[in-house]
Design a binder for these strands. Sequence first.
DNA 1: TGTAACATACCGACCAGTTGGTATGTTAAT
DNA 2: ATTAACATACCAACTGGTCGGTATGTTACA
Lengths: 205, 205
Amino acid sequence: MNKDPESTRTKIMNAAESIILDKGFGGTTVSNVIEQAGVSKGAFFHHFSSKAELGEELVQRYADQDAEHLEQTLRKAEGLSDDPLQQMLIFIKLFEQEIESLEKPFPGCLFASYLQQSELFDPNILDIIRESMLLWRTRVLDKLKKIEQEHPPRRDVDLESLADMLMVIFEGSFVLSQSLNENRVIAQQLSNYHSYLKLLFGPDK
Amino acid sequence: MNKDPESTRTKIMNAAESIILDKGFGGTTVSNVIEQAGVSKGAFFHHFSSKAELGEELVQRYADQDAEHLEQTLRKAEGLSDDPLQQMLIFIKLFEQEIESLEKPFPGCLFASYLQQSELFDPNILDIIRESMLLWRTRVLDKLKKIEQEHPPRRDVDLESLADMLMVIFEGSFVLSQSLNENRVIAQQLSNYHSYLKLLFGPDK
DNA sequence: TGTAACATACCGACCAGTTGGTATGTTAAT
DNA sequence: ATTAACATACCAACTGGTCGGTATGTTACA
């Protein structure tokens, strides 16, 4: 008997996530998954009661990693400056650097993949995704509020939609980068967001 | 015999587009399509040699409509001002208004849907999508170049990525609006882009 | 003008292959 | 001896696609 059943589980989930990002959930078969994972059908249904459950556990894992990634990067940025504006600008730059350091094409976002086929999923799965996106909104909005206090914006601006804009830039640039097959556009768009914030809250030149 | 076979064809394509935007291409069956379209399987395969051909004709039609929509809105904006910056700002505002006038949830973008399942399609289908996106880049970039000549930007900026940013904002806000079930976020994000351009090229206050 | 020859538009039963899922093993560690 | 962790064989439902057939056109020519 396998000493490490968790590794089989992980193999299945990793294979599934990779295939789903290429073909979508509806275009992915469990045969595809078990072939790529190198496990039997029995192993698959031993670990997951259905394809749908796999789908749910996948987003849950993805959401957890996403939240962790967000918090970690935020803490890192906060450690590098005391000024909220600088923290936010560093925060964005950290993501830019991360993208630039990728050698392979960016694999895409599982949230976006699911949302493009939302009728295939239970509402609770869509809830997980929405909560994940709202976490970004909350974290960035908090920071923007602090920025606003210390740096009066050059123009009136809706902070909530400005916070949402980061997620929008991410998701939008993922789509464009997928089409053009260029990771660079993601970093460039983050840079545009960076530049926008500097113009809004930065000092006059 | 049907006097208007084109209407059957259109019924099939409209049904298919609508379902694909909800379930993705891979999650859509021809049974789904013919049921919603109210036609027989025979009729389907009389008009389309395969599901894949339907998929191709669908993007082609979508790309044509998209290009037409782009050019039309651009001409309209150009008719409302002589200043390239104002034309661009009006251009964006026209899209904002269009979104705001929708009463139903925005149905999503077929390009993004296909790109999220790119492995399901021939390269030539992905080419159609890429060309459509590059048309937006070209048209907006042309305008930005004229703006730059008359309005020196407040910050150094890469015009090409600034042009891409419109498509990025569209696609990204489609994703977020799908998750939050709020069309409003699309208009808000367009407004952010509008604001960014004003800050970049607009007069000092 | 009538009609033979043919084309178009469509129907729905049917097919082979695939799908997600199950039933029944086998193996090995506790 | 029990049970977790698989493997294999299998199943019914569904998949995209084909088929023979029919109803309604259009065209050409006697």
